[in-house]
């Protein structure tokens, strides 16, 4: 894996150099466009460096060139909860050289919560979903809730009032617990969200005893789970996650609808040429089968979850509709 990494870096650097020369030399007449990726491709991450989506994009960019035949440069365009970067790609030329690392936040949640955004969830040409990002419901290790049933019973009890930590309003960590309340037939008022800046900050608040529970990104909670500082009660994936086999899934506890998972993939601006779509779909299908990519993704706390365009389009639509519904129910959609 290491050899691949370094190779790809060399390729990337060489590609970047070529790219710069191509840009710096406008006098060169446009070559006949025979094979699609003839220069490196920018993969826009609508979040800052070091975040989960950024790391996912960099993992992808390290393996993709093998199958795409060109370097992939990760470009961070953060702002407005992912909306700035997504908007930038949506407006860009559909030439296949500016692509978007999709994420549930920028592609579905932002448009679902703010109808006045300049783009809509379906303004992109979704190419494939690459991975999902399990969420896990956690309580502090010394809490009296030993299992999900204990917890659900406490939620249902008369006068229950819980505080839960989120990684920001309108985030999966905020909507997920609301889905749980809805499926249990409880009003949203049983849990009061306390909005922090990140999953890590929400975890800290839980450890401090400031909030009662949190449901968020497995990767951010993994170390606390392994060290025994917090207890995992339920996982949002359809199947149990390797390494966390003792945590049951929501499906197992009888609430299959609470399957809120984050996801990431690749999309382009609307109107991509057929050859670009084909090239990317083929490359993504192969990349997501590559051992090096799978091991990277797992280390970063995501689960490989390849989904081709045919399935991805309706998946995004379904996700969007369900979050619009939740947002309307709890009065979040303005």
């Amino acid at each position: 894996m290491r050899a691949q990494f370094s190779l790809s870096i060399i390729r990337k650097a060489a590609g970047a150099a070529l790219c710069a020369f191509a840009l710096a030399a406008p006098a060169v007449p446009a070559q006949a466009q025979d094979a699609y990726p003839e220069k490196p491709i920018r993969l826009v991450v609508p979040y800052g460096p070091g975040g989960a989506t950024d790391l996912a994009a960099r993992a992808l960019a390290s393996v993709l060139p093998e199958f795409l035949g060109q370097g992939v440069i990760v470009v961070n365009v953060p702002g407005a909860g992912g909306a700035v970067g997504a908007q930038q790609v949506e407006e860009s030329e559909p030439d296949g050289y500016t692509m978007l690392m999709t994420a549930i936040g920028a592609n579905v949640l932002r448009p679902a919560l703010s109808p006045d955004l300049p783009y809509s969830y379906d303004d992109f040409d979704y190419l494939a979903r690459t991975q999902i990002n399990p969420n896990v419901l956690i309580v502090k290790a010394d809490s009296s809730y030993k299992s999900f049933d204990d917890f659900a019973a406490a939620l249902k009890a008369e006068g229950a009032s819980f505080k839960y930590g989120t990684a920001g309003a309108g985030n999966v960590t905020h909507l997920g617990p609301n889905m749980l309340f809805g499926e249990l037939g409880l009003p949203a008022s049983v849990g009061t969200p306390v909005h922090y800046d990140s999953d890590g900050a929400a975890l800290l608040a839980l450890l401090q005893g400031e909030v009662d529970f949190a449901q968020g990104n497995l990767a951010s909670f993994a170390s606390a789970l392994q060290s025994g500082a917090v207890r995992g009660l339920a996982m949002t994936t359809p199947e149990r996650v390797e390494g966390f086999d003792d945590i049951p899934t929501y499906t197992e506890v009888g609430l299959p609808e609470v399957s809120i998972v984050g996801w990431r993939g690749v999309a382009g601006p609307p109107g991509l040429p057929k050859e670009v779509e084909d090239a990317w779909q083929a490359a993504l299908a192969k990349t997501t089968e590559a051992k090096s990519w799978i091991s990277l993704v797992k280390k970063l706390g995501d689960e490989p979850g390849y989904m081709p365009k045919e399935a991805y389009d309706p998946f995004v639509k379904k996700d969007y509709e369900r979050y619009v519904k939740i947002a309307e129910e709890i009065g979040l959609r303005k």
């Binding site: 460096p49 890590g200 975890l203 800290l204 450890l207 170390s223």
Partner: peptide, 10 residues
Amino acid sequence: LGIPGDVVTA
């Protein structure tokens, strides 16, 4: 704690 304080620690 696994909690980053800024972009570098992230």
